[in-house]
Structure formats: C-alpha cells, structure tokens
Design a protein around this nucleic acid. Structure first.
Lengths: 186, 186, 186, 186
DNA sequence: TATGAATGAGTATTCATTCAT
DNA sequence: TATGAATGAATACTCATTCAT
C-alpha cells in the first residue's frame, strides 16, 4: 500500500472520527495529510470509495486481531469469551476506528450485504452455528445471534468509554460478558 | 401545533428516513410539504432544530404508547415484557420513526445528555432500579441495563424488518424476549 | 422576465462572445452581472440551460427583426433580399449574438432538431418552398436551400466584420446578395 | 513520425470527433491510445499544440488528396469542379476529420491567420485569382470567393451526411455543384 | 404568518501539466 | 523516450439561511 494512500486513510479516519464524514471535506483530509488535493482522487475515485476502503481496512484489522486470540483447545464458551473480549478491547484501543464504524454502519454508505461478505462475519456465523448444533445457544437464527453479540459489544464499549474507571476492572468485564453469554446461551 | 409545522415535520421524517438528513435539503422538505422555502425557518430556526424537534416528538409518542400498555398489578417481568413488546411493535409500525432515530442517535446531532433527560429514559431507569433492588436484575449500573435493553430492542426490530414472516409469530417473539430477559436478569 | 435573469443573460452573452463558453465560469458571469453566485442557478438550473435559453432568446429577436422588414407586395426576390439583408445587418449590429451563435451551433450543446423547431426556420422553409413551386429556385430540398442561404449569410457577415470599409457600401452588398441569389435561383 | 505520436493523434481525433475537445481530457486520450499519461506532453507540449498539430495534419492530407485529382489540361470550371468534388468526398470519407475541423474552426484555438498560411488555401486563392482575371468569377475579393466555396462545401457535406441516399447520386451532386458554381461565376 | 428570490460560503471532483524515476 | 504518481488551480453546482415584500 503506497505511502500517500496510507497517510490519507489515516488522516481521514482521524477527521471522520472527530467530526463525522459529512463535516469533513476531502480537501481538509488532503491538507492535513500533507498531500495534494488531487491525489486523494487518484487513490479513491470518490469520497464514498475512501469511506468504503476504510471500512474494509478496519474490518480486516479487527478480524486479524480477534482471530489471533483464539486457541484450538478452547471450549465454546471460552471461544466466545475470547472473541467478545478481543472485540471490546480492540475497540477501546482504537477509538477512532470504533467511532468511524458506528457512523458508517448507520449511514447510507452502509448496506448489510456488504457486511455479510466479510470473513469477520463469516467466522462469527460459524461459531454461532456450532453453538446451536451443540445445543448450547438459543434456538434462533445464527445471524441474529451474531447481531445480538455485536450490539452487546457495542453497548459495552460505549459504556466503558463513558466510564473509564471500569476499563481495567477484570471482574466487572467478566460480569458484562455474562450478560452477553446469558443472552445467547440456552 | 400549527398546520404547516405539522406538515413540515411529517415530510421531513419521510424524507429523512428515505435519504438520511444529510441528503435532504430543507428546500426539498418545504417543497414536498407544499409550503414555502422560508417558512420552515419560521418554525425551526435551523435545520438542527428541526431535527431535534423531530426527535422529541418521536420520543414523546413512543413514551405515551409504551406507558399506556403497562398495568399496575403486573409483576416486574411482566412490566419489562410489556415495555419490550410495546417498543418493538411501535418501531415496526412506525418504520420512518425508527429509521430516523437510528440515524439521529449515531449522528453528531445527538448527545446522550439530551437523551437522558427524556421521561422515556427516566421511566426505564426507574424500572431498572426496581429490578436491581428486588435483586432480580444483574448487579450493574441501571443506565447500562437500560442501554442493553435498548440495543436488544433495536437488534430485534432490525431482524424482524428483514424477516417479516416472524413479525406475527408470537411464540418467536417470546423467544426473542427471553434473550433480552436472560441478559439482564440475575 | 425578471431583472436579474435579464442581467445574467446579457452578461453571459458578452462574456461568451469574448471568451467562449468553455472559458467563461458561471461565477464570473454572476460577478460581472453584479448578482450572487447562487442566483444564476435559480434562473438556469445548469450552465447548459443558460446557454440554451440564450439561443432561443437570440433566435426570437432575429426572427422578429427580420420578419418585421418583409412587406406584402414584395416579389419573391425582394423578399429573399429583404431577409438576407436583415439577417446580415442584424448580425453586424449584434456581434455578440453572432459570435455566440457561431460557437453554439458548432458545439455539442446544439442539435439540428432544436433548430428545426424554431419559427425562424419554419418561415424560411416556407419561403424556400414558394420559390421552388414558382420554379424560381433550384430543384433541391427546401431545407438545403435554407442552409445554403444561412451559410452564405454567415460568410458574408464574417467577411464584412473583417473588412469594415465595405459595411456601408450598398453597391458591394448588392453584389454579395447576387452571389447568394445566383446560388439558389434556377 | 513516431509510433506513439501517431497513436495519440489518431486516438485524439476519434475522441474529439465523438465528444468535442473540451470534453476530452488528455488523460483519456493517452489511456485509450494505450500509452502513458506523461508521454503525450513529450510529443505535444500543450493540449493546444496537439489540437493544432491535428489541424495541420488534416489540412495536409486534404491538400494532397485534392491536388492529386487536378489535371493540367482542365478548364477552369473543370478544375473548380474537381476540387469541389474532391473536398466533398474526402470529408464524407473522413467524418472524424470533418467533425474535428468544424469544431476547431469555430473555437478559440482557431485564427484565420493560421489558416491563411496553409498551402491548401494558397492553392485555392490562386485558382480564385485566375478565375477573376479570366473574368469568369464575380468581381469580389479572392479570399471571399474561397470562403464562399468552403462554406458551400461544408453545407453540402453536412447535407449529404444527413441524407446518405444522395451520397452516390452523381446527378444530384452535379446539381449541388452548379449551386456553388453559379454563386461564384459571373 | 407566509412567500420565494437572493445570498455566498462551501464542496466534490476534474484536468492540464510537471516531475521523479 | 517512457511511466504514472503528484500537483493545485479551477469550476459547476448546492444549500442553509436571510430578507424584502
């Protein structure tokens, strides 16, 4: 990935997270990235494509991070816990990414078809499927189980951002996980 | 509430729900509402105020609807169920309001302080508090309990919108409620 | 026709004639007309519509001018002469309009279908038809006869603009008319 | 003439003829020609120079074609006819060149001084001069006679393009020539 | 209250041209 | 010669908001 493309994506993420993408002119992104106005459109033909590119880039990173945490011999609950915790922590450590995703997923730029194709979702669905087959999870659609977990992760992250004192409280986080686990387990 | 103000709010809601508020010029709202360009700013000095007004109006309606469903002699679980179901159904029946709220709550127009003041939230927090005092709910912050319920309602509504065949399946909706209930109950 | 619309059309004509329409930004038209940038798009939703509006306005004026010169008892040759002379003189007296038309008719904005509908063309075609029926004109398509006359008027005007000393030389202009007349007459 | 220069000129002509030169970016010419963006400016330092180069190249070709048709023992009328026919046919067979010339000659890129220098014009002027001296042509400026012929050729080509059924009708084309001849002859 | 013309700052995108390699 | 990334000025059009009536 070229130097300037990288700079642009990073600057855009910062500005989008601070001001939202509607309030962030492409010219400002270029300026703050220290590159020329025009080059942005060399890498991303439209602002929308920049936004989509960022989405994929973030999704990829969160996928690699969370997957890397899983270990083979884990029980189902342990795997779910690992993913849940990894997701929560990744988002806390990457607040710009988190803010961007929140905006993106509730904007006209987003469609759930786009999301569905990502390996992050694929992987999560597989886990949900396993849980259902082992009769551990509630008897509802795997996609729904995934969406429930996702929204609980989101709620958790929002809460921890507003209440930073809990961020390192392992016991508290375990309690939060139990909420999510109880929701999906039979 | 004057005739034109009402027309404007309704037209705006429709257009915002269809295209998002960034893609909906005030001029288009006025035109589609059949009123003049300028009068919009008589009722709502800025576009942001129109958006906020819509938010309050919707929150008020959902509050009155859900509250009206509660009955005195209900158990705690029954009350939670009643509120959950009322919220889910109201959102399904008012999809434009739902879409608007989704956008609004993830936009720079929104702040959680604004939300916190609404009687809808107040009422919900009281219920959460009751549940904690009766030792029925998990031992976490009431606000968090409320946010968890809200996000599960949201997830549920999104799922039912995408899978309309379940919308009238009472047994399925009960199962969905159990997910939410299991999440918060001890 | 509103004041500003009129100002804009006139300023545009001047600037288009001086610099061509590709080299004339809409912002400059507005500035030079002493109106705001945005109002141009109130009257003419796109630059192309401004250009088309100018075309019709000019065609209308030339039509009214030339038609007003014709008199009933005239012979065919006299009528043709009257129109030819009126067209030549009008174009010499309205050089901005002439320049604009030249550009316009050789630009992608122009289509001959658009032209064909104008009463100026209609009128000219009728005259051509008369001449053919009276067996005075050559035996070719009326439209072609019209186009021949038009292009000879154009050539004449260009020549007189480059050689102003001939502009008031009646005898010379008569000779120029004989060229056109000989071309079409049998 | 180098390979790439040739490719560029040809691609440019095609694109200019299709879309006009204002709507044809140099980048697109290079891309469609299969060469790099930058190399265009090696052969043609500016877009204007590319356009002028095309003009000369076309004028040269039309000159060689028409001149090659003339034969020594021809009468004046025969020579004029030969040139007229050659010009009409060349333009019909090279519609991209014709379209380009039309645009070019009515654009700010063009000036009549540029045209005047070309041997095509020189040759035509000589012929006009001959005709005047032999007292065959009307008694007006040779340049004007040339411009009249040119504009009648142009009108003829446009007409034949719109009415292809006449394109191979020799008798019809003769009639069209008589129009031109009558215009200039005494 | 109501109209709709008017304002003018703002914005994504384009494109001829340059330049390091 | 050749590449294609890089530049940055330019431009049509938008839109929240104001204002004269």
């Amino acid at each position: 990935m070229s130097d300037k493309r990288f700079l642009l994506i990073n600057t855009a993420k910062k500005l989008f997270s601070e001001n939202g993408f509607y309030a962030t002119p492409t010219a400002r992104i270029a300026k703050e990235a220290g590159v020329s106005n025009g080059i942005l459109f060399h890498y991303f033909p439209t602002k929308a494509e920049l936004i989509h590119a960022m989405y994929y880039e973030i999704k990829d990173r969160i996928f690699h991070y969370t997957v890397s945490q899983i270990y083979q011999e884990a029980t189902l609950k342990e795997s779910v816990y690992t993913l849940w915790l990894a997701a929560v922590e990744w988002n806390l450590e990457n607040p710009e990414d988190f803010d961007f995703m929140l905006q993106f997923e509730n904007s006209p730029y987003f469609s759930s078809e786009i999301e569905a194709k990502h390996k992050y979702v694929q992987m999560s669905l597989e886990l949900a499927e396993q849980g259902r087959q082992k009769n551990v999870f509630k008897d509802v659609n795997s996609l729904l189980l995934f969406q429930i977990m996702s929204s609980l992760v989101e709620t958790t992250v929002k809460f921890l951002k507003n209440n930073p004192s809990f961020q390192n409280d392992v016991e508290f986080k375990n309690r939060l996980f139990e909420i999510a686990w109880d929701a999906i387990k039979k």
